[in-house]
Amino acid sequence: MDVFYAYTYGTAGWLGMQAVLLIVMPKLVVAMLASGVVHETTDLEIYFSRSLGFALLLIALIVLFFTGTVPLSSSITEPVSLEDNDPKAPYALPILRVTMFFHALSMIYCYQRWMNYRQTGYLLGAIGYAAMASFGLWCVVFGTSAGRVSKRTGADKRTAGFPFKNSTAYDKKKDRKMG
């Protein structure tokens, strides 16, 4: 599976899991994160919990559909690339960057709440968001270019032999001799 698809499915799964909990069991979530010992949930807290759950579910679906992970047409001949000019998923790279930023900010917020209140729910949220943010950062740094592979030798042209001899590095002289 492509790393980008794994990230989009992971993002949708993480947000979907939170959304289902907020929609189905808002009283439990509010009670777990309340600072008091016994907390009676209000109708407003339930409303905002379910609204946040629906918003997270919408974001998860937007990530899946607009990145090309779930195709909107019935025919796919080649996978979606993360180049800016890909007609199959023109929003793939911007959504990748925005969701990575969202995961990072949410991780910072959950960690800050955990440092202040020492509640396990915030720590679990911080760990989940940190995992998704680091996975997204990895996709942005390493997963957005296909590489430059030589048609003749099959070696990646971006590798070099400096400072140590790299036997798999692309060699222009060897490439010219073979052609």
Results as ranks from 00 to 15, higher is better:
109 Y>L: 14
50 R>K: 14
81 S>D: 13
41 T>K: 00
75 S>N: 11
61 L>R: 04
36 G>Q: 15
36 G>T: 15
31 A>H: 11
28 L>R: 13
58 L>R: 05
10 G>F: 03
58 L>G: 15
46 I>F: 01
75 S>K: 09
32 M>V: 03
28 L>K: 13
12 A>T: 06
66 F>E: 11
65 F>H: 12
106 S>P: 00
18 Q>V: 09
76 I>D: 13
81 S>C: 08
82 L>I: 10
57 L>W: 10
97 R>S: 07
7 Y>D: 09
23 I>E: 08
97 R>W: 05
23 I>F: 08
64 L>C: 08
69 T>L: 03
26 P>H: 02
59 I>D: 13
109 Y>D: 11
24 V>S: 08
51 S>I: 10
5 Y>V: 11
16 G>A: 04
97 R>L: 04
9 Y>C: 08
101 F>R: 02
43 D>H: 12
92 A>L: 01
59 I>P: 01
8 T>S: 12
64 L>H: 08
56 L>V: 02
72 L>N: 10
60 A>V: 10
57 L>F: 13
16 G>D: 11
92 A>G: 05
26 P>A: 03
16 G>F: 05
95 I>F: 04
8 T>H: 10
91 Y>D: 06
64 L>W: 08
52 L>T: 14
13 G>P: 01
35 S>G: 12
79 P>G: 10
25 M>T: 13
45 E>L: 01
69 T>H: 02
29 V>K: 01
55 A>I: 12
30 V>W: 02
112 Q>L: 12
78 E>M: 10
71 P>M: 04
96 L>T: 09
24 V>T: 10
106 S>A: 14
72 L>F: 06
62 I>S: 05
24 V>G: 04
69 T>G: 07
34 A>L: 06
39 H>D: 03
45 E>G: 00
24 V>L: 15
32 M>K: 09
44 L>T: 11
31 A>S: 14
26 P>M: 05
